[in-house]
Design a protein around this nucleic acid. Structure first.
Lengths: 109, 109
DNA sequence: TTTGGAACCTAGTATTGCTAAGTACCGGTA
DNA sequence: TACCGGTACTTAGCAATACTAGGTTCCAAA
């Protein structure tokens, strides 16, 4: 992963995962796969699991264990009310930053 | 500063400062003021100085000391060729992330 | 002399993504 | 049976970066 991307993901990856969970519960391995499909091809597996632990501890998601036919049980994450709030805030913060950067890019000669 | 914004600035603040330096040299105190005017009202002064040390050590800027009428000498930073390359890469990384996020936002129901 | 603003510096902390290694479960294959 | 590969999750230690909270220097004005 490019160093720039790694640093830029700090603070956005959590929002990205929360957004992925909107309207659709998912488990860790699945989320990693989704991220890779969306173009984040080099996201480390461990990164995702660590992030999921974090958002669970923050109370942004509800967790349910479900058996899998192909391996150890899955931990399925569902966005709860608090998680939705956090996601709203994330979009606000993102919008602000995004607008500032687009202005800066325009000015750049 | 909101915690989300703090985390989101990781990886973008450097790009923002490089962008500010495009076509216009500036010194630390001035850059801090510029950032505040652009809406980043709570950027810590120490953060900017530390960042300037970093980009100087990475060789992205040239530095010149100039006397000031009102205090200790200013350190004026100018974007050099390597800095312009870094800024280009920054915009590429930013564009990628930005596009992914806009897609995610659209999908969010 | 003291105060305040301009201008810069830095040690320590918290957060977060990555590296690298591991465990558990199961089906297929030699 | 024994092994391998894919699914699925976990964790300890490291690196990068923004913040906190102090500090220093210089000069002019009160």
């Amino acid at each position: 992963m490019g160093k720039q991307m790694t640093e830029m993901l700090k603070g956005t990856l959590e929002g990205i995962v929360l957004a992925l969970l909107t309207g659709k519960a998912a488990y860790g391995y699945e989320i990693t796969t989704l991220l890779r499909e969306q173009g984040f091809t080099e996201i480390a597996e461990g990164t995702v699991y660590a992030l999921l632990v974090r958002i669970e501890q923050k109370g942004l998601v509800d967790v349910e264990k479900r058996p899998s036919e192909k391996g150890p049980p899955r931990k399925v994450y569902t966005l709860n009310a608090q998680g939705k709030n956090e996601l709203d805030e994330f979009w606000n913060t993102w919008s602000f930053l995004s607008e500032r950067l687009e202005e800066l890019r325009k000015e750049g000669n």
